[in-house]
């Protein structure tokens, strides 16, 4: 074993960092489950199980110490971030396939922890979104808006078989009083604007009650809370989340000021979809993010910009996954051009 100075160390070990991330997702996961039911938990459990099994198998195939490989908790973090992003009661194989892709292809085939150029959870998510758009955009309405109550046993039936105990499919639970399928607020906006409605008309729908919307605002606030915990514990640094939120706010405000009939207001941007989960938990994945201070500000701001543009003008209701992957690609370039002035080379020299 190599003995090299320093002979004293005081790190926050990798597995401590990863466990803190898992811990910080708990408020968000609980609020999600409160609004959307047991499906969230089923996704999280499935993803975690698949991640652990696939990580160990592939480590074994790569002739690495699989026990030690699991001890860093990075596979669990990937599984949880993906699980939190999946629609509740999407069939079980969605979670399984996404996690397999994330762990095996996006992470291990690039060399495992520390070597993946893309955020594995988001790579898995985008694979699913592009391959199975219907399943991936079928979100249950918040339980307070549901027309037909969904008992626990039926939820489990739906998850594993696609049908509840009475033979009803998921669509049965999606429909509102008028028999139309309900969706997430961002879906609603995208569909409404696509059909030629003006924004003030769309937001009259019951899902937009409250500050921004029903359910999702609390989910985002809960992830914000977890994110603040990570900042306080110095597990993540402020640059990426602050830059991302600031750029989203700024860009959304300018666009909204320009045309308030067509553009989503900033507060709806911030408190809908995966905004806070993305800002504090996904974009901050250090392996695939930019690593210099200035670079992280650019990285975060870039994600915020792309999220707003795709949500306002693109074909998809939400865009955190796309934005993160796009910026992952640019991270080496950003790092290259944002090197800090080394001691003795800057203005003070």
């Amino acid at each position: 074993m190599l003995i090299s100075s320093p002979h004293t160390r005081n790190p926050q070990p990798v597995n401590f960092v990863m466990r803190q991330v898992v811990l910080a997702t708990i408020p968000g996961a609980l609020v999600l489950s409160y609004f959307f039911g047991i499906g969230i938990i089923l996704n999280l459990l499935t993803c975690t199980l698949v991640a652990i099994v696939s990580e160990s198998v592939i480590l074994k195939l790569r002739q690495r110490d699989w026990r030690q490989g699991l001890q860093d908790y990075s596979a669990v973090v990937t599984a949880i971030l993906l699980g939190l992003a999946l629609p509740p009661l999407a069939p079980w194989w969605i979670a399984t396939l996404g996690t397999l892709f994330a762990i095996v292809f996006a992470k291990q085939l690039y060399g495992g922890l520390g070597y993946n150029p893309f955020n594995p959870a988001m790579a898995g998510y985008v694979l699913l979104l592009i391959s199975f758009p219907l399943s991936m955009t079928t979100w249950l309405p918040p339980q307070s808006l549901m027309q037909h109550p969904l008992p626990l046993s039926d939820a489990i039936y739906l998850f594993f078989t696609g049908l509840d105990s009475h033979g009803n499919g998921l669509n049965y639970y999606l429909s509102n009083v008028d028999g139309f399928a309900m969706a997430t607020p961002l879906d609603e906006l995208k569909t409404g604007l696509g059909m030629g409605y003006r924004l003030p008309e769309i937001v009259k729908a019951p899902i937009f009650n409250g500050l921004a919307n029903v359910g999702w605002q609390w989910v985002n606030l809960a992830f914000l809370l977890g994110g603040i915990y990570l900042l306080v514990r110095r597990v993540i640094q402020w640059h990426i989340p602050v830059a991302m939120i600031a750029s989203m706010t700024l860009v959304a405000a300018v666009l909204y000021g320009f045309d308030s009939d067509q553009n989503i207001p900033p507060v709806v941007h911030l408190l809908s979809g995966a905004t806070m989960l993305g800002a504090f938990f996904i974009a901050t994945d250090p392996v695939s993010a930019a690593t210099t201070v200035k670079g992280r500000l650019i990285f975060g701001a870039g994600i915020g910009l792309i999220v707003v543009i795709i949500r306002n003008y693109g074909g998809y209701p939400d865009a955190v996954a796309f934005a993160v992957l796009l910026l992952n690609m640019t991270a080496p370039l950003i790092d290259h051009y944002t090197r800090p002035a080394v001691y003795g080379t800057g203005e003070q020299a």
Partner: peptide
């Protein structure tokens, strides 16, 4: 030691 995770600490 584990792989570098580029945390930047």
């Amino acid at each position: 030691s584990l792989p570098c995770i580029r945390c930047g600490v």
